[in-house]
Structure formats: structure tokens, C-alpha cells
Design a binder for these strands. Structure first.
Lengths: 219, 219
DNA sequence: GCTTAAATCAAACGGCTGTTTTAAACGGTC
DNA sequence: GACCGTTTAAAACAGCCGTTTGATTTAAGC
């Protein structure tokens, strides 16, 4: 059996199962049974269960992040001397991940897994994610600052956090939402999802900032 | 040893550990060690690990939901014949949970756990949560409809979902966010958090709805 | 103080876990 | 076909898991 087959089978099965039940609730035996491979193959190819998780996440997330950065660069080129549009920044952030799901026959496992990652407190995974997301965080932070030049840093941090939650929750439940609202979860439905998310979050970012409450520490 | 002490010790330890690492990654032996009680006590008092999780969640969430409904009723009484204010509805939903955390010496375990619940795909827990949240969902759905009479049902569903994500992510990370942004996570800090969240989500709910994309299924 | 119920305890049950080990099979090259 | 590196396979290791069991202790009521 060719290497790529076994390895890919494991990654596919792990992606599906981790997305469904979470890392800790899925054993290697569950995965190899679903993948129809031998238990020792996991250690041979990936080294450990934790490393398998990283591999599962990064094989999907890296191309997504590359596309995010690429879309952002295009948005910059398009804006030229004018200010970056907030909607373009948000779309650059959201569209690649939702589009990747629509283009994968694995269905919603991918988005669900990526959405779960945002909330996962597995310390090893978070450490790993810092590396994976470093460039995205740097570039998009700049872009948000440019698109929203008047927004205070503290407000920016909070609102970015709200936005991340809205995005991740949607990633986790794209399948449920689509069926519940009778919208199309397929190739064209992701565009509607992205558009809705952009509208909601853009408005949130632009919301009027009320006066800060008392006793705020200096940052 | 008095019953309430052992039971409470288990609940406190479980709450902290489940919040930190998640249900599946925490064993009963971890919990009883942290609680300094005997392993069999879990089954004596709660019946199973799953039932313990339900108990942990509901002991905090029930009072929160009661307060939510109470605050909402007050907002209705205050509005009288006028339309319910969206901000009041949102605040009724968010403030009780953030306030409960501020009032508990358990610190952020409580909010983190409640936030995690929103994203947890543990089927038993989700079934349990349907019962716990039934009244809140009914009453707040009505309230949102009243406060946003022009918003299409599909858009309402999507935006409610984005809002839930933003709230849950904030609950999961209230500790990190507060320290990162240099804001006070204590008794007065929660009000600022709630205010920020209300501003962001209210603006999102009120965002202009663009024309729906093609090929939308009829609901 | 006695009886009964409640609560706690330690050990065990039956099963599962990630990881390791060693041998065999496979595939490519000469 | 022999050799070598890669890959797969089965078994085992050492440990952990949730749950159960039966004995003992504690608390409550009379």
C-alpha cells in the first residue's frame, strides 16, 4: 500500500472524528478502525496522537491562511491610495475558510474542526496555533487598524474577539444553521454565509463606542 | 462529614477542572483528588460522570436563566406600551452570566464552563441543555422579534447565532481578555464587558440586510 | 443506647488508552 | 534473486478509566 494512502486515510478519519467528538473523546483505535489501517501506523507516520491533531489541523489551515493573506494583498492593491475597506478585510478573513469547506468532499468536518480549534484549551494545540496564525494575526491586525483608524486599541481587541467568536461558532455549526434556516450549505451557500457574517461583524466594529466605565487600568 | 461539604467539594472541583480541560480530558480521579474526597462518592451523590457534568452546569446556569427571564420581564414592564429596546434584551441575556462570575469566588471557571457548553458536541449534554434553555429560548426569541420587527426570520436566526458565538467566546476567555486589554475583570469590569458586547451585537443585529443571493430555498 | 438510613471507604471489576517492540511484508534498485 | 530502506502488522507494555461491591463509619430519630 502506498504511503500516501495510509497517511491520508488516517488524516481523513481523524479529521472527521475529531470534528465530531473532540480530541480527547476519540481514541486512536476509533481512528484506525474508521480508516481501516493498523494502530502502529499512527505512530509510524505521525509520532503521537497530539502530533496527528496538529497535522490534521495544519493540512487544512495552512492553505486557508495563505489564501487569506493573498486576498488581503489583493484588497490592498485594489484600494491603492485609498483606505482599506473593512468589508474587504473581513471577507479576506472569512471567505477562504468557508470556501475551502464548500470545495471539500469531507463536508462540514473541516469547518467544524477549525471552529473548535478556536475554543480548545488543549495547551499543546494552542502553542502550535500561535505559530500557524502568526502572519495572519500580524497582517490582519494592521489591516483592521487601517480600515478603522479611529478605533481605540482596547475596543479593537474586544471587538476582534467578538468577531472571532461569531466566526468560530458559525464554523462549528454551519451544517446545522444551513438546514435550520433552509439555506443552501453547498458551493453557493457559503457566499451567503460569509456575506451575512461580514455584515454583522462590520456593523459591530463600527458601532459607536460609549464612554468607558470608571476605574479602567491604563494599557 | 456533612453531605453538603462532600457534594459541594466535588461540584467545585469538577467545575474548575471541566472548565480548564473539558469533560473528556478530566477523569473522576482527577476530580476526587482535587476535592479530597473518595472516588465512590461521585457515584453515590451524582450517579455517573455524565450526571455530574449536568449537575455542575445546571447549578450555575439555572439561577442565571432565572435572572435573565426576570430582567427581561422588567424590561418589558419598563417599556410599557412602547417597543422593547434591543439593548435591554441583549443586556438581559448577557449581564446575568457575567455578573454571576463576578460574584463568585470560583473566578472564571464558571464563565469558561458556560461558554464551553455552547460549543460542546457531547450529545447527552446538548439534550440536557435543551431542557435547561427552553424557556429562555422561547422568551428571548419573542423579545428579539419585538425589538426588531422588520428583521426577516432567516436573518434573525443567523444573527442570533453570530451573537451566541460572540458571547460564548467571550465567556470562555473573559480572564485572558481582561488581562490582555488591561481592563478590570472584577466586580466592575463585567459591566464594561457586557456593555461592549451589547454595543457590538446590537449594531450587528441592526446592520442593513443586503439582497439575498440567488438560489435560496424557500423556508 | 439502639436501630436505621445515609454516607464514606478501599478494593476490585472489566475495559480502554497511547505507546513501544519486533518481525514480516513490501517496493525499489542493482 | 539479493539487498536495503520503508511500511505494515500483531502483540505487548504500563497505565488509566468509569463503575460496582461489600464493609465500615457516621448521623439522625426514637
Amino acid at each position: 500500500m502506498a504511503q500516501s494512502d495510509t497517511k491520508t486515510k488516517i488524516l481523513d478519519a481523524a479529521e472527521r472524528l475529531f470534528a465530531q467528538k473532540g480530541f480527547d473523546a476519540v481514541s486512536l483505535r476509533n481512528i484506525v478502525e474508521a480508516a481501516k489501517v493498523n494502530l502502529a501506523a499512527v505512530h509510524y507516520h505521525f509520532g503521537s496522537k497530539q502530533a496527528l491533531l496538529h497535522a490534521v489541523v495544519s493540512r487544512r489551515l495552512r492553505p486557508v491562511n495563505e489564501e487569506r493573506l493573498s486576498m488581503l494583498a489583493e484588497a490592498r492593491a485594489k484600494a491603492g491610495k485609498r483606505k482599506l475597506k473593512l468589508e474587504a478585510v473581513l471577507e479576506s478573513l472569512f471567505a477562504p475558510v468557508f470556501r475551502a469547506q464548500a470545495n471539500h468532499k469531507s463536508g462540514d468536518s473541516f469547518t467544524r474542526l477549525i471552529g473548535r480549534v478556536v475554543f480548545d484549551r488543549n495547551a499543546e494545540l494552542q502553542k502550535f496555533m500561535v505559530g500557524e496564525l502568526a502572519q495572519v494575526i500580524i497582517q490582519f491586525s494592521r489591516a483592521f487598524d487601517e480600515a478603522l483608524p479611529g478605533l481605540d486599541k482596547t475596543e479593537m481587541d474586544w471587538r476582534s474577539h467578538f468577531m472571532a467568536g461569531a466566526m468560530a461558532h458559525t464554523l462549528c455549526n454551519a451544517d446545522l444553521l444551513a438546514s435550520f434556516t433552509g439555506t443552501d450549505a453547498g458551493a453557493e451557500g457559503y457566499e451567503a454565509t460569509v456575506q451575512r457574517l461580514v455584515e454583522f461583524t462590520a456593523a459591530g466594529f463600527r458601532a459607536k463606542v460609549s464612554t468607558p466605565p470608571k476605574k479602567q487600568k491604563s494599557s
